[in-house]
């Protein structure tokens, strides 16, 4: 499993940035997404992140698949806020005709509700897109070295990279486990809800036990390769902050501080529509 295969990534100038500066970008974007409630600002932020993703060479197929999978969630968000969020404003766009049973005349779609729903969508888009933007454009080794330079214990950085190594292995395992379960006559459609849950959850049991047995072998392998978890080791790969990295870090911090100050001082970023 490599970044290239998951995210269908192409090389870009963004890859040259150090992990630490990109992490700063991630934190800044996450912070701003929380800070701002204005549809226009969150839309702008999501757009910036999306453009960065494209510039960074993240494949359209990955982004497309992701959006497709998020679509049901977005639909629910939009509908619930559009129809029921009466707290933010009540400009009606459409009212259910009086003749409709129960909801006639009372159920209405509001402009503000829709806007709020859109804001939520942009917000979550930012939160999600920024992760592949940072992770996929960072060579795993630079990521590890970057983490170590940030004084994250080497053990933790090591766990991160090893987990990635073993995910594809366990994916294969779970396929063979679910197959074995089907071969034992498991026909979910014929079962009650709780029974289905009980039987189905058992696919996780051999997966977890098998993984834990493997981990004993991994420990022995690690010991035989002189691994001790100590950060006192050399690194094949390097990680260094260049001027452009410092610039990005300062820029991110600057934007966050200014945004925070504006929000407190003038309320910029509060929910509202343009022209209010």
């Amino acid at each position: 499993m490599t970044w290239r295969t998951i995210g269908s990534i192409q090389e870009s100038p963004f890859h040259q940035l150090d992990f630490r500066s990109k992490l700063m970008l991630l934190l800044a974007a996450t912070f701003l997404a929380f800070l701002w409630e204005s549809p226009a600002l969150t839309a702008g932020l999501a757009l910036v992140v999306l453009v960065l993703c494209l510039v960074a060479g993240i494949g359209l197929s990955y982004l497309g698949r992701m959006l497709r999978l998020m679509l049901p969630f977005y639909a629910i968000v939009l509908l619930t806020h559009g129809f029921w969020n009466t707290n933010v404003g009540r400009t009606p766009l459409w009212i259910a005709p009086e003749t409709w049973w129960l909801i006639g005349g009372s159920l209405q779609l509001t402009l503000e509700g829709l806007a709020y729903g859109l804001m939520v969508i942009f917000r979550t888009l930012t939160l999600i897109l920024v992760i592949p933007l940072v992770i996929f454009t960072t060579d795993l080794n630079s990521l590890i070295v970057g983490l170590v330079r940030m004084r994250i214990p080497y053990k933790i950085a090591f766990i991160f990279s090893s987990t990635l190594r073993f995910v594809p292995l366990l994916l294969e395992e779970i396929n063979s486990i679910t197959e074995a379960q089907r071969l034992r006559g498991l026909a979910l459609e014929k079962m009650s809800l709780l029974q289905r849950l009980r039987v189905y959850s058992r696919v996780a049991v051999p997966l977890i036990l098998g993984a834990m047995v493997k981990s004993q072998q991994i420990e022995v392998v690690l010991a035989s390769k002189a691994f001790s978890g100590s950060p006192d080791r050399t690194y094949l790969h390097e990680s260094s902050l260049r001027a452009v990295d410092y610039a990005l870090i300062i820029l991110c911090m600057g934007i966050v501080l200014v945004a925070l100050w504006l929000r407190m001082a003038s309320g910029l970023g509060r929910f509202g529509l343009p022209g209010w």
């Binding site: 499993m1 490599t2 795993l140 080794n141 990279s161 090893s162 990635l164 190594r165 292995l169 493997k214 072998q217 991994i218 022995v220 392998v221 690690l222 035989s224 390769k225 002189a226 691994f227 001790s228 006192d232 080791r233 050399t234 690194y235 094949l236 390097e238």
Partner: peptide, 30 residues
């Protein structure tokens, strides 16, 4: 040491990192 299971004894995400891992641990220069 080389062990039986080809899967659990490779712990890095690329061929060169696999070879480098033990060397990094014993502080061999880059």
């Amino acid at each position: 040491m080389v062990f039986q299971d080809p899967e659990t004894q490779l712990i890095a995400n690329s061929v060169e990192d696999e070879v480098a891992f033990g060397l990094e641990n014993i502080r061999v220069p880059r």
